[in-house]
Design a protein around this nucleic acid. Structure first.
Lengths: 194, 194
DNA sequence: TTAATTTATTAACCTATGTTAATGTACAGT
DNA sequence: ACTGTACATTAACATAGGTTAATAAATTAA
């Protein structure tokens, strides 16, 4: 299981065998129930998470309204990056939408490996770069489209997720109301019955 | 001038004196006229830019429509990061809104310094981290607001820029039409005459 | 300075989406 | 099986923002 994780990291950037040796002991398995939180808005962040199974939503709460920012599915990293990097209180909440199996490790301990094991710093740079690339492409897609198109993109981006979570979470992610999403769905079914 | 740049980079992450020695020769001064491009959508990217004076807009062109994604003002980096990192054709265009003075350097040559001068890899990681933090905070602000609020945020974020560029560029940035921006401005003036 | 061009404002009308509320459906607990 | 709760759909109406077009203002060219 943890070997599997190292293998994936190694594809992003090669990890030395000494690196492996000091990294593996940092890993901890975690499972959480549906509706439990990895972290809540306002808390300090400690951990980097790797999601092995389940789904997580990330949302921002303002004046009692929740705005879903993104979802995480298997083999992604539902991690409060900004809070970890800047060591500030987390501005987002990470909530399990399904029962989740995860692996986590302390970001602080991980960071302390950089000095001696340069491969981890290089790895981190690669990860940030990949994040940036993905985020920019996602933004470009979303900005130029209407809600109907973005709903289709959501279904491509998170295949199958639609049937596992309430529609109002999807609506919030799309920046529309559940009512409007329902109208969009009705219209799609009418025009292209599938 | 170039010493000034090194000083700023040094604040982000310390650069060794050997690092300075190999980095400085990479720098080139560039000036461009209003409406000239640093790079156009579809082109390959080569350079990292540092904007000393002027303003640049970044936009995405889709079906003949332009969507302003962001602006760059003095002392920022109007650089096609994704295109450089992934060595793909640039998905965005960078256009001077005012006459610009810049410094640029080859990303490829910069990258080739990493192996021998670790400080540049660390610097790059810091830059990516800062970018991410800034982007996430910006996104959170924008997502939860209406166009009127975002217009106010734009004025805070880019002080003075409003009076130097056409309003339709601001409207595009806000995701609304120039007509709607004009209505918003009229309403703001009526309610709070300033 | 005048004319031409570009940009901003305003008005009339249209559409997508928000709001509220009623109804329908599905699942969970007893 | 019944009941309650949560969720989705639908309808009626309200509103922000889009579209088009006319006009006004500002900038640029002659």
């Amino acid at each position: 299981m943890t070997e599997n994780i190292l293998k994936k990291l190694n594809e992003i950037h090669p990890i030395t065998s000494e690196g492996r040796a000091v990294f593996l002991p940092l890993l901890e398995s975690v499972t959480i129930e549906q509706k439990e939180f990895l972290i809540r808005q306002g808390e300090k962040a400690q951990y980097v998470y790797i999601l092995l199974d389940g789904a997580v939503r990330v949302f921002y709460n303002k004046d009692g309204n929740e705005y879903n920012k993104t979802f995480f599915v298997s083999n992604t990293f539902p991690t409060p990056i900004t809070a970890l990097l800047s060591n500030t209180n987390c501005e987002l909440s990470f909530e399990a939408l399904l029962p989740c199996k995860l692996v986590r490790f302390s970001y602080k301990k991980f960071r302390s490996l950089f000095e001696e094991h340069r491969c981890f710093e290089s790895l981190m740079l690669r990860i940030m770069e990949n994040l940036w690339i993905k985020k920019e492409r996602h933004d470009i897609r979303m900005v130029t489209n209407d809600a109907t198109t973005n709903y289709k993109i959501f279904k491509e981006e998170f295949p199958g997720l639609e049937n596992q979570i309430p529609q109002y979470h999807i609506a919030s992610y799309l920046g529309i109301t559940p009512v409007q999403l329902s109208r969009i769905r009705a219209q799609l079914i009418k025009s292209r019955p599938n």
